[in-house]
């Protein structure tokens, strides 16, 4: 079991990690961020990606798919953005948002590690 701070630190250890945020998608606000900079403001990314998560959840609802999102992958020219809605009882309503360098990261490994981090995360 790991608390939020150490989970975020662990996520930053993933090869190619640029930034990570734990976000509450009911308010769009980040509970914690690591790797935020002047050029890449993770609080703005948190607010924007909240709309992405909400849109996808609404889409599933409209399609009457009785399923949940494991992760959302957004591939940019130079980055991967991975969004992982959390599902345990005490993390519901939150998602992990991870920014990876496309040249340095191994996507499969990063997804696997994020899954482990999610399982261990204790709020």
């Amino acid at each position: 079991m790991a608390d939020m701070e150490s989970s975020l630190q662990e996520a930053m250890q993933i090869e190619g990690a640029i930034g990570v945020a734990l976000v509450d998608y009911t308010s769009g606000m980040a509970l914690g961020t690591l790797g935020s900079s002047k050029e890449f403001d993770l609080t703005i990314a948190a607010a924007g990606n909240t709309d992405v998560v909400r849109a996808k959840l609404r889409t599933l609802e409209m399609l009457k798919l009785k399923d949940s999102i494991e992760d959302i992958l957004i591939t940019l020219g130079g980055q991967y953005h991975v969004i992982r809605p959390l599902t345990s009882r005490n993390t519901q309503g939150l998602f992990l948002y991870m920014v990876l360098s496309r040249t340095r990261a191994n996507l499969a490994m990063a997804r696997h590690k994020l899954k482990t981090i999610e399982t261990d995360l204790q709020m």
Partner: peptide, 10 residues
């Protein structure tokens, strides 16, 4: 109730 508060701040 569906407001994105962080977005509003921004």
């Amino acid at each position: 109730p569906d407001l994105n508060v962080a977005r509003l701040h921004h």
